[in-house]
C-alpha cells in the first residue's frame, strides 16, 4: 500500500510517521512537501503532528491554505483515505474536511502523557482491526486538543457513528479525570460522514514499538487502514 506523509513547515512527527510506516510496517511511504500539487498515486495520506506555520492565528489555520491541501480535498472527495494526527487533525478541522474544532486544553497546559482511549466504532477503515469498546494505550502531546462542536452536530455525529475514540480510564470507564484536555463528550478522534477522513489527537505513530514506548496499540490503526485499502 502506498502512503504519503505531508510535511508542512513546522511539522514534527512526519519522520516518525514515515519510520512507523516504512520500518515497522514495511509500507511504501513517501514524504510529500506541502507545495506539491499532486499526491503521486498514494492510497492514504497522513497529515502528521507538529506546529505547522508556527500555529499562527489558530492551530492548522494557515496550513489549510498550502497548495497540497487542494489536492487532498479532491482526494478525500473521491473517497481517498486521509488520516490527520494531532496538528493534522487540527488542519482537517480548519479545512472543513472534519467537523468541529480543537481549542486550548482546559488546563491551559501542554500535556505529554500516555492516555487510554476507547474505540467507539470499530466498523470504519481506521478501526476495523480493533473491537468496539477496546481500550488502546496511545500517547498524546498537545496544547490545543480540546474538541468542540455545536451540540446539534455532536448529536448527529454520535448517531452516525462518527465519534471513533473517547478518552477513558484504563478500565474503559468515562470520567472527568480521564479526559485530559476537556474535550466535549471526551472525544479523542472522529471521522467524516463518509468514513474516509479521520482525525485523532493521540499519536498512533508513537505507539508502534512496545518495548520502547510502552505499547504498540498504534499499529492496530495502521493495520486497519492497510486492510481497508486491500
Amino acid at each position: 500500500m502506498k502512503w504519503g506523509v505531508v510535511r508542512f513547515p513546522g511539522s514534527l512527527d512526519d519522520d516518525d510517521a514515515l519510520y512507523a510506516l516504512r520500518e515497522v510496517l514495511g509500507q511504501d511511504a513517501r514524504m510529500l512537501w506541502h507545495k506539491e500539487e499532486t499526491l503521486g498515486g498514494v492510497h492514504c495520506i497522513v497529515l502528521p503532528g507538529g506546529f505547522s506555520y508556527g500555529d499562527y492565528l489558530r492551530s492548522g489555520a494557515i496550513a489549510r491554505f498550502s497548495p497540497i491541501m487542494r489536492s487532498i480535498a479532491k482526494f478525500a472527495d473521491d473517497g481517498g483515505l486521509v488520516l490527520g494526527i494531532c496538528n493534522g487533525f487540527q488542519i482537517l478541522c480548519e479545512a472543513h474536511l472534519l467537523p468541529g474544532a480543537l481549542t486550548r486544553n482546559r488546563s491551559l497546559a501542554f500535556i505529554c502523557e500516555q492516555v487510554t482511549i476507547r474505540v467507539e466504532n470499530a466498523r470504519t477503515p481506521l478501526t476495523r482491526a480493533t473491537r468496539a469498546g477496546e481500550v488502546l494505550r496511545i500517547p498524546i502531546k498537545h496544547g490545543e486538543g480540546c474538541y468542540v462542536a455545536p451540540e446539534s452536530e455532536l448529536r448527529a455525529m454520535e448517531e452516525r457513528g462518527q465519534v471513533l475514540f473517547r478518552y477513558v480510564a484504563p478500565d474503559g470507564g468515562l470520567s472527568e479525570a480521564a479526559n485530559p484536555n476537556g474535550s466535549m463528550r471526551a472525544i479523542a478522534g472522529v471521522a467524516n460522514e463518509r468514513f474516509n477522513v479521520f482525525g485523532l489527537m493521540p499519536h498512533p505513530e508513537h505507539a508502534v514499538e512496545g518495548e520502547l514506548t510502552g505499547g504498540a496499540d498504534g499499529l492496530k490503526l495502521f493495520h486497519s487502514l492497510i486492510e481497508a485499502a486491500r
Binding site: 491551559l108 480540546c146 468542540v148 476537556g182
Partner: peptide
C-alpha cells in the same frame, strides 16, 4: 465555548 484563558 470553554474559555480557559479567560477563566484563569
Amino acid at each position: 465555548i470553554l474559555d480557559p484563558q479567560g477563566r484563569a
